[in-house]
């Protein structure tokens, strides 16, 4: 797969520094699981973290800190979290989350929840849109980050196929169109809300629970 659209460097830096909130981290991790170039960029940033750590001034540990650590070296490793078996060949980061069942939310469009208790009001979900579907023109009040796993959609800023990452903010008003053929499946993290445009959008707005 040729990935054309990547997260911005600032976003990759925030991910590498561990300062991105959880919901956004999930969609970035999903992209990274599909994109060797961005994994490499994240590792470059991690080298920076390492260099800063090497140069840091030390802060004294409490007396006996080393002895306490040494006393624990023989202890067995805590049980690792088990990832659930991956379904539908989902990208690895998603396999750690409980997924709801698919529900129709409009003509040709299905939605399923991703159980991320986002503390900051982000909503995380997957969308599946049939080939040839045109989504209502909409804009966002904050940011909408999307990673495609399957199929492709197009809007003003280009074509987004498997692995592509769409980092849309409140300056974007778009009217995505799903390519003919296989349904397009993607992971979406939405901060703020969607404002549908036009009379059709206004009619649909209350029906869309996302």
């Amino acid at each position: 797969m040729t990935i054309m659209h990547h997260p911005s460097d600032a976003t990759l830096a925030a991910f590498a520094a561990g300062t991105l909130d959880g919901a956004r981290s999930l969609v970035v991790a999903t992209h990274l699981s599909l994109c060797p170039a961005c994994r490499k960029a994240v590792r470059t940033f991690e080298h920076v973290g390492g260099a800063l750590l090497d140069e840091a001034a030390p802060t004294g540990m409490k007396p006996g800190a080393l002895e306490r650590a040494m006393a624990q070296l023989g202890e067995p490793e805590p049980v690792a979290r088990q990832a659930r078996p991956s379904e539908e060949n989902l990208p690895a980061p998603l396999s750690h989350y409980e997924l709801g069942s698919w529900r129709w939310i409009g003509r040709g469009v299905q939605w399923r929840s991703v159980a991320v208790d986002a503390a900051d009001g982000c909503r995380v979900f997957m969308l599946k849109a049939a080939g040839g579907t045109r989504l209502p023109r909409h804009r966002h009040t904050d940011t909408e980050w999307t990673c495609v796993f399957q199929g492709a959609f197009r809007h003003d800023l280009g074509r987004f196929g498997p692995g592509d990452f769409d980092e849309a903010d409140d300056s974007v008003e778009h009217n995505p169109f799903v390519e003919e053929g296989a349904p397009c499946i993607c992971l979406v993290v939405l901060a703020g809300s969607i404002e549908l445009q036009g009379w059709m959008g206004k009619l649909l707005q209350p029906l869309i629970r996302i």
Partner: peptide, 21 residues
């Protein structure tokens, strides 16, 4: 994340895989 009781953790761990290059 535990403090926020979010069902999230360091996803940085989940993306490590063998690189072809």
């Amino acid at each position: 994340r535990q403090l926020q009781r979010a069902k999230l953790y360091a996803l940085q761990e989940t993306i490590e895989s063998e690189e072809p290059e």
